[in-house]
Amino acid sequence: MAEEGWEPKIVAFCCNWCSYGGADTAGMGRFQQPASTRVIKVMCSGRIDPLHVFNAFLEGADAVLVTGCHIGDCHYVNGNEKTEVRYEFLEEMLQQLGLEPDRLHLNWISASEGERFANFITDVTAKVKELGPSPLKPAGVK
């Protein structure tokens, strides 16, 4: 159902301490990746409200990535553990809404894992390309 000229658009929520740094390290290492993703920084993955994720889908995101520090590495003790709980809830909700599971991902990426970040973006982009535009995407949105 891919529309003409459609390219996936992915919103990635990254935490200040780990995954945002991972995206930086991907840049420093020149790990090339599709230009599909827009990073939004929060201080901790625990700040990522289901509201933000739903909003991203409603505005037109073809996929949303929730990322943070590896478990045990959270700068705020255990914010990412709370993210994990909220993510499970989100996953279920989105499936009920009829969204394919590949449109929402949770990944722990440390500030040193640039290659991991780039591979993640590459993989998700490829998967979403196969799925086509999100069914929740409003008409006319790019």
Partner: peptide, 30 residues
């Protein structure tokens, strides 16, 4: 860190510099 406001059911809590309206403005403008 902002973990508390992600849990707030009423939207009474806000994190300065990472307020909901600020983050949602970013989301919208993707």
């Amino acid at each position: 860190c902002g973990t508390c406001m992600a849990a707030c059911p009423t939207g009474a809590l806000e994190q300065s510099h990472f307020k909901n309206e600020q983050l949602l403005a970013q989301v919208k403008n993707v």
